[in-house]
């Protein structure tokens, strides 16, 4: 390679390489200021969107798969035994929004905690912001006063977070919360009282509104079927008998006389008018699952009122 050839090589190969290196250096500070970011989707206002309901939300993978599964099992186990609903969100940053505001938006949207009891707790951790918060729904503010929440953050969570052991800190924090909730006289969880964990009952054993709507439908089906058959055989009195019977059973099952009367009345109408009426009731009664459904079988009770209880902490 002669000198001319080398120069040509330099101009073709080295100059672009130098240029690329310069670009990389120029881009460095910009990358540095962008470092604090999260994989959680952002809204149009630049704030982190309320994530879909889940026991453990970890968009930036601070927890190993095993740790995440372990925490989920722990939370699910506590809900089964004691009924209270707890959830954890860990992410890199809240993009400049105070963690309190973010946590409150989530709490307001999820409303975790049983219907009529409202026993929910939300733990949020923003790792790069070095901020964490325990949000306590109003009905648990007696069991977990702000000071107790603050102490749990200080003594159980922050020491683990300092050495980047996020799963350990959250787990230890949960143990502290579990102990406080267990000490409170709340109705037991579904695992103790009711074989069907999908159905929530309030203190008096009644089935909550949405569940009731869902469970009433089979009654209408069976009632309308029997009612139609009997009406053909016996006329209107047959429909009355079936309607009364179905209503009575429904009132016993739901522990509510009103529900029984309504079911009975609907069955009577269905028996007389058949399918068109049934369609009408489906349209009127067939509400979607609303905020209830979440991933991994987690279903918010919708009772938690997050109005600022709990504490924040830093590490």
């Amino acid at each position: 390679m002669n000198a001319k050839g080398f120069l040509r090589f330099a101009s073709f190969a080295l100059v672009p390489a130098l240029f690329a290196a310069l670009l990389a250096i120029a881009a460095q500070p910009a990358l540095g200021s962008q470092a604090r970011s999260t994989n959680a989707p952002l809204g149009s206002d630049g704030l982190v969107r309320v994530p879909p309901l889940a026991r453990v939300t970890d968009p930036d993978h601070y927890l190993s798969a095993a740790d995440k599964a372990g925490l989920e099992a722990k939370l699910a186990g506590f809900e089964t035994s004691r009924g209270s609903q707890l959830a954890v969100i860990i992410l890199t940053t809240t993009m400049g929004e105070p963690l309190e505001d973010f946590a409150h938006r989530v709490g307001d949207a999820w409303k975790i905690g049983r219907k009529g009891i409202g026993d929910g707790v939300l733990i949020t951790v923003a790792v790069q912001d070095h901020a964490t918060r325990i949000d306590v729904a109003r009905s648990l503010e007696g069991a977990i006063p702000d000071l107790a929440a603050s102490r749990i953050i200080r003594e159980r969570m922050a020491p683990h977070f300092l050495v980047k052991d996020y799963a350990g800190g959250i787990s230890s924090g949960l143990d502290g919360l579990f102990a406080l909730i267990t000490a409170e006289a709340l109705p037991p969880g579904a695992g103790n009282a009711d074989a069907n964990p999908m159905v929530q009952r309030d203190q008096r054993g009644r089935v909550g509104g949405e569940d009731r709507l869902r469970m009433v439908i089979p009654f209408l089906f069976i009632g309308a079927f029997l009612g139609n058959a009997l009406r053909r055989g016996l006329g209107a009195p047959g429909a009355v008998v079936v309607a009364g019977g179905t209503g009575l059973i429904a009132s016993l099952v739901f522990a509510s006389a009103l529900t029984g009367v309504i079911v009975g009345f609907l069955v009577f109408l269905l028996s007389l008018f058949g399918a068109p009426m049934f369609l009408a009731t489906q349209v009127l009664g067939g509400r979607g699952p609303g905020i209830g459904m979440g991933s991994g079988g987690f279903r918010s009770g919708g009772g938690g009122d997050f109005s600022g209880g709990g504490a924040s902490g830093r590490w």
Partner: peptide, 20 residues
């Protein structure tokens, strides 16, 4: 520090109550 926690909690509740 405990009083501080209580105060912060109250300020937080105030801001939520105000928004509502």
């Amino acid at each position: 520090q405990d009083l501080r926690t209580e105060l912060e909690g109250t300020e937080n509740r105030i801001s939520i109550a105000r928004n509502r």
